[in-house]
Computed example of a mutant assay.
Amino acid sequence: MITCYIKYEINPAKTAEFEEYARMWIPLVEKFGGTHHGYYLPHEGPNDLAVCLFSYPSLAAYEAYRAQSMEDEACRKAIAFAEETDCIRRYDRHFLRPVTADG
């Protein structure tokens, strides 16, 4: 399993718009075989930091999702919404693997 961790720098004046964007993506990741662990918005501390985590069985499965999502109308709509509202300033994508008690 591979987990994608995305750290967003969001526009603090557009937190509601970012939350709407986030709600669009959760079912889309799941539509393409992923498990979404949620988006996390500012509460205490920096008001321009948000993160999300979602997992795929493998990096190959993640890459397939990325390719398929570029052709999907709902995914393109979500991307356009973020661009139109300017709710995301930048983001960094990281890939993590879990460490569990059973290996």
Rank of each mutant, 00 (worst) to 15 (best):
C4A: 13
C4S: 12
K7N: 04
Y8G: 04
Y8Q: 04
E9C: 10
E9P: 00
I10D: 01
I10N: 04
T15R: 11
A16V: 02
A16K: 05
E19G: 03
Y21Q: 10
Y21W: 12
Y21H: 11
A22T: 01
R23T: 08
R23M: 08
M24H: 11
M24P: 07
W25C: 04
W25F: 05
I26Q: 07
I26F: 07
L28A: 04
V29N: 09
E30N: 09
E30P: 06
G33N: 08
G34Y: 07
T35V: 15
H36Y: 10
H37N: 07
G38F: 03
G38V: 06
Y39P: 06
Y40R: 15
L41R: 09
P42T: 02
P42A: 03
P42H: 01
P42E: 02
E44G: 13
G45K: 06
G45S: 02
G45F: 02
P46G: 12
L49R: 14
V51D: 12
C52A: 09
F54C: 08
Y56L: 05
Y56P: 02
Y56K: 09
Y56S: 03
P57E: 15
S58P: 10
S58R: 14
S58K: 13
A60N: 10
E63D: 10
E63Q: 11
Y65S: 05
R66A: 13
R66C: 09
Q68E: 13
Q68R: 13
Q68K: 14
S69T: 07
S69N: 01
E71G: 11
D72W: 01
E73T: 10
E73Y: 09
E73A: 15
A74V: 07
A74Y: 03
A74F: 05
C75F: 00
R76D: 04
K77H: 12
A78C: 01
A78M: 01
A78F: 00
I79W: 07
A80T: 05
F81H: 04
E83N: 11
E84I: 00
E84Q: 14
E84T: 01
D86A: 15
C87P: 00
Y91M: 06
D92W: 09
H94V: 03
H94D: 07
H94F: 14
H94S: 13
F95G: 02
L96Y: 11
P98Q: 13
T100V: 14
A101Q: 08
A101L: 09
G103R: 06
G103N: 04
